[in-house]
Design a protein around this nucleic acid. Sequence first.
DNA 1: CCTACCGATCGGTAGG
DNA 2: CCTACCGATCGGTAGG
Lengths: 194, 194
Amino acid sequence: MSGRMPSKKKQVELTATNLFQERGYAATSMRDMAQALGIEAASLYSHIRSKEEILQNICFRMARMFFEAQNEALTGFTGTAAEKLERAIVAHVKVITEDTSASAVFFSEWRHLSEPHMEEFKQMRNRYEGKFREILHEGLRNGEFVALDERFAVLTILSALNWTHQWFKATGPMSAEEIGQRLADVILNGLKKK
Amino acid sequence: MSGRMPSKKKQVELTATNLFQERGYAATSMRDMAQALGIEAASLYSHIRSKEEILQNICFRMARMFFEAQNEALTGFTGTAAEKLERAIVAHVKVITEDTSASAVFFSEWRHLSEPHMEEFKQMRNRYEGKFREILHEGLRNGEFVALDERFAVLTILSALNWTHQWFKATGPMSAEEIGQRLADVILNGLKKK
DNA sequence: CCTACCGATCGGTAGG
DNA sequence: CCTACCGATCGGTAGG
């Protein structure tokens, strides 16, 4: 009876997020979620329309978060390509560390999206990665970066970043900013001492 | 009636590997596999004992491949930590590129292993990663590498490597060796021109 | 490798 | 949010 969407739907999504992360979307049943929430499976449907709707909400909400963080980091910023890349990396890692469970679902479970959602998802991701490609391109053109296949470099960078959710807790008391900075540093300067 | 295990079991595992990669283990049914092979679901059980047995075979076979490649790359080799790391990276990437489908299953689907298999799997993986930690440690101790949290560095490196299976085909005509070399180069020297 | 089938579980609906 | 239930599908077995 409350005017705006109550927090129960959020609770369902939070529980689902944790279960999807642990066991994967396909291996998580509506009964699993219901049990974790202490209600009957059928009761879930007064808060959500379908199992996939939950997945869609998680995936597209995270996509939005990544976009917003990237825009904030880059719009209006003028600097070297290396500085831009650093800012984009820190922003990206911050989003991951702020919700590692939802990030894990975002990175691993989007393939269970049905069509047209999966196509839309892929397009968003491609647009997002495009910003990284742009920065790489700029750094290659102006001689800041070493010669590298752009696509190769972008995917390598994002791969390094996108596993952060797996070990963020385990690594101890590094802040999101700190982790992002270190990752940016390794990517830009490498492991070898100069 | 043939003396040794015939190739039909291998065919089942190959089909399963491709389906597990595409849709994930949990979302792939025995009927899906049977259909892809042109037989009935029940007939699969004359070649395999259970659905999970297939997953176990894939995961542990790949684990063996990674270990063997790592041993070949490192045993008897004397050189700098950077050179060791380079060899370990090239060996690792070569295993991935030689079977991207099985690698994808290895990296993403091991969590569906039942117990004691999952525990054994994790222990093997930890031992494997330990070799990388050792090399990192050596390079930190002797001043070759910049100061970094070891665990952080190893996971970042492996993250960058372990996404190779996702884009290997897409990137075009780079050989496994070439990709490994480039990855090692970025990790050791970074993107910035010196 | 097949037919015929098992009990269990799936996502979801009807109707309160 | 519940009881009661649906048809579909699941992994797997019996017995050829």
